[in-house]
Design a binder for these strands. Structure first.
Lengths: 124, 124
DNA sequence: TATGGTAACTTTCAAATTGAAAGTTACCAT
DNA sequence: ATGGTAACTTTCAATTTGAAAGTTACCATA
């Protein structure tokens, strides 16, 4: 009995079972690059993820070991979300997707080294 | 008035509007690496994409200029699907996703250079 | 000419997922 | 007591998915 039941042996198909939707990688992006740690911070993402979706995706990412949920204070209970090493290892995937979206869809850029970002239609 | 209406300026968000689902990148994979050209061939993919989904996704990819649909014969009408240059430019994205799925989910590998693939649980 | 087969879809419809909004629980502050 | 915040959960209508059957057009064979 395997740990997980995949629909295919294909690495791409397997990865898409985890992150193949419109929100999951945006949540990973915010955790990876934008210092978002709390449910509220993540919910205030640029795209406005619905709270039920955010809740479900965080649960899924945690279940797969890409995200850890830590109570950083009791009373009132507050939680912080962090990427695990496995979660952080998605960075090259995000970078390639970003590069493609920048080149072909005119989307913005973010440079993890400098922390600087460029948005289309803004600036000189 | 822009060509397309995106929900965000983020390159990742924009890219996910196009390929952020469980099937689209598998179709791109089959066109990119596995020589699938016809609707039937694509439908016989390892994962078994439903024909209505395949139809809709091909239409979308064509609309965005990633795929071209050519009639390669009349009577009976037969069509071939090909990736455009823009579609082919997704290869690095596929490769990164594949690498991640191989390392963390134990999925198979495909080497575009040699055309050889390795599947988990098969072989010596 | 009738029967069967293939390709490329489209249609149907029940089930699953999504998303907007409101609700819940627990706590702190005034 | 009243109000505010964080972290969710619940509700429910609308959208999307997916399994299956149906459609259209053509060719092949008996």
């Amino acid at each position: 009995m395997a740990k997980h039941d995949f629909r295919s042996t294909c690495s791409i198909a397997r990865t898409l079972e985890l992150v193949g939707d419109k929100w999951t990688l945006l949540i990973v992006r915010d955790l990876m690059w934008h210092g978002k740690r709390t449910f509220q911070a993540l919910q205030d993402s640029a795209e406005g993820v619905p709270s039920n979706i955010l809740s479900e995706r965080l649960r899924r990412l945690a279940k797969w070991g890409l995200v850890r949920r830590d109570a950083y204070q009791q009373r009132p209970a507050r939680y912080a979300y962090h990427l695990t090493e496995q979660g952080k290892s998605l960075e090259p995937v995000l970078l390639e997707i970003m590069a493609w979206g920048h080149q072909y869809l005119g989307g913005g850029r973010y440079d993890p080294k400098s922390g600087k970002s460029w948005k289309p239609g803004v600036g000189p």
